[in-house]
């Protein structure tokens, strides 16, 4: 017998603290598989955020830095500028990246920092207990919008891929999902491209992963998967927004 699926080397054996059905684990595994397949593990530095994945340095089997809330892209910039030979990626949730860290991600993207940004969008603040995020869906109930997100009061959810793709510099911007096999296969392809572009010293790359949070959504893991399909994907289209191959197509000169 030949093993065709097992834990990648870049993923530590340590069990995660994530809730049952939380797709952080899938995103972790995909990153680890890609780093292994590209042979990058031994020169990778992962930047982990503040949020549910704050302890991700325990789950990855390579060097990591723990960033303060929202600042992972600045930390990654510092590493990548000082040590361009290292492979650097950021791993941030939606509160971290799209709220407190908005300036850092936009400017890192706009400078074309040659690291890979992985953005986990599950429409809620997870670690702090399910508060409203910039990506919370209209009408979605959270602990800080108990009557549902009121777009008259707090605006519509921010689409990060669309926002970053409006900038001229960023090379690779793609939204994927990690809740079902057909999406997971595409998510891995996108991540692999993103890291390959970095290894080739080509461009800044951004991969947004639509993810689940069964606990804070108040749904079973299976219902949460359905919620991504029915509620998130219609608002957050899963597709490539920009890649070096199609450079110029989206440019507004």
């Amino acid at each position: 017998m030949k093993t065709i699926f097992k834990r990648p080397e870049a993923l530590a054996e340590t069990p995660t603290h994530y809730c049952p059905g939380c797709t952080h684990g899938v995103a972790h595994r995909l990153i680890a598989e890609v780093l292994d397949e590209l042979g990058l593990r031994e020169r990778t530095v992962g930047i982990v955020p503040v949020g549910c994945s704050v302890l991700a340095f325990n789950y990855f089997n390579f060097d990591c830095q723990e960033a303060s809330h929202g600042r992972a892209p600045a930390v990654a910039t510092g590493i990548k500028r000082g040590r361009p030979d290292l492979i650097v990626f950021t791993y941030q949730g939606d509160g971290d990246l799209a709220s407190i860290g908005m300036a850092e991600i936009v400017h890192a993207a706009n400078r074309g920092e040659k690291f890979t940004a992985v953005f986990i969008n599950n429409a809620v603040y997870g670690m702090t207990g399910g508060q409203m995020a910039p990506t919370t869906m209209p009408g979605q109930v959270t602990t800080t919008c108990p009557a549902g997100r009121d777009v008259e009061q707090v605006g519509y959810p921010i689409r990060m891929c669309e926002l970053l793709a409006s900038l001229r510099t960023p090379g690779f911007v793609e939204r994927v999902a990690v809740h079902q096999p057909k999406y997971i296969i595409k998510a891995k392809r996108a991540l692999k491209k993103a890291f390959q572009y970095q290894a080739d010293n080509r461009c800044f790359s951004f991969v947004e992963c639509l993810s689940t949070c069964p606990t804070n959504w108040g749904l079973t893991p299976l219902k949460a998967v359905q919620w991504v399909d029915e509620t998130m994907i219609p608002y957050y289209p899963v597709k490539n927004f920009k890649s070096p191959e199609t450079e110029g197509e989206g440019d507004a000169d």
Binding site: T3, I4, K6, G21, P181
Partner: peptide
Amino acid sequence: ACRFCAMVCPDVAIEIAVEE
């Protein structure tokens, strides 16, 4: 051996092997 189960497992609890 389609691997769907392993792909969606957030806890990487599944290993799959096939005949050579």
